[in-house]
Design a protein around this nucleic acid. Structure first.
Length: 256
DNA sequence: ATGGCCTTGGTACAAGGA
């Protein structure tokens, strides 16, 4: 079983690249972030033609998430975090096969002294409680998406220059560890990886060509799933496309 | 060189992203 996450930065723009990627990478489930589409504009028919069911939760202009699945529609779908009032469409959850999948587009936070950072902290508190409850009900669980957190210094191209800036603050990293503390593990770090592995590169400054990026897109798997994880990789290929998303997909492979 | 790019909404340029 293969599961993946990809921040597409506008599904309206990236739909052809998504369909190309799915044809080359027929994963069993895929969560998308930053679809930036209201639900009435979501390209469900095109995705169905590619062989995927899809659940989605969108809004105008910003955010928006989706959960694609290849062998039947996801079951028991939940949109956003129950009990956490939020105008922003950031979470979609569903059961694919015997795995509970939570796809999240974590708030950016803008700057550590901003109102958006306060929102990010509150959102992360609510997410942790939600994941804890989901995990209790579904031991086989995957939490994946655009976390907007670089968990360690090795997840940033210049951790000295970026120290204390958004994505690298101690508060954000403590929240990442809080999620790990629920009984999850960063699938990417279960394996030896190339140094300077990142999942996002700024559109500016020739950042991708210079590999000046951040690893902020993650796949966390529950302890019950950990023994089944056989690989976790970042697919840089779509970042080389014309008009690419600034994020690369991350893929995890589970045995049986 | 402290900004560089991309997307949306809307049709000029501001906001947001990371």
């Amino acid at each position: 079983m293969k599961l993946a996450t990809w921040n597409v930065n506008s599904l309206a723009v990236r739909l052809p690249q998504l369909l190309d990627w799915l044809a080359a990478n027929p994963v069993d489930a895929l969560v998308l972030q930053e679809t930036k589409l209201t639900d009435d504009k979501f390209p469900a028919a095109e995705i169905a033609a590619a062989g995927y069911d899809v659940a989605f939760h969108g809004q105008k202009t910003y955010n928006g998430v989706a959960l694609l699945s290849r062998s039947g529609a996801a079951l028991d779908v939940v949109k956003n975090i129950p009990g956490f009032a939020d105008e922003q469409a950031r979470v979609i959850t569903g059961t694919v096969g015997d795995v509970r999948v939570i796809g999240g587009y974590f708030p950016n936070g803008q700057a550590p002294d901003s109102d958006k950072f306060v929102y990010k902290m509150a959102w992360l508190d609510a997410l942790r409680a939600f994941v804890q409850a989901e995990l209790a009900a579904h031991p086989k669980l995957v939490l994946m998406g655009d976390f907007n957190i670089a968990p360690e210094d090795r997840d940033a191209h210049d951790p000295v220059a970026l120290a204390g800036t958004i994505h690298l603050t101690p508060e954000e990293r403590a929240h990442f560890q809080g999620l790990i503390g629920l009984g999850l593990v960063d699938a990417f770090r279960l394996f030896e990886q190339p140094p300077k592995s990142y999942s996002w590169w700024d559109y500016r400054m020739l950042a991708f060509r210079k590999n000046q990026g951040l690893r902020i897109d993650h796949i966390l798997v529950s302890e019950a799933l950990k023994p089944a994880v056989t690989a976790c990789t970042i697919d840089k290929q779509p970042r080389r496309n014309e008009r690419p998303s600034d994020h690369a997909p991350v893929v995890v492979e589970l045995s049986n």
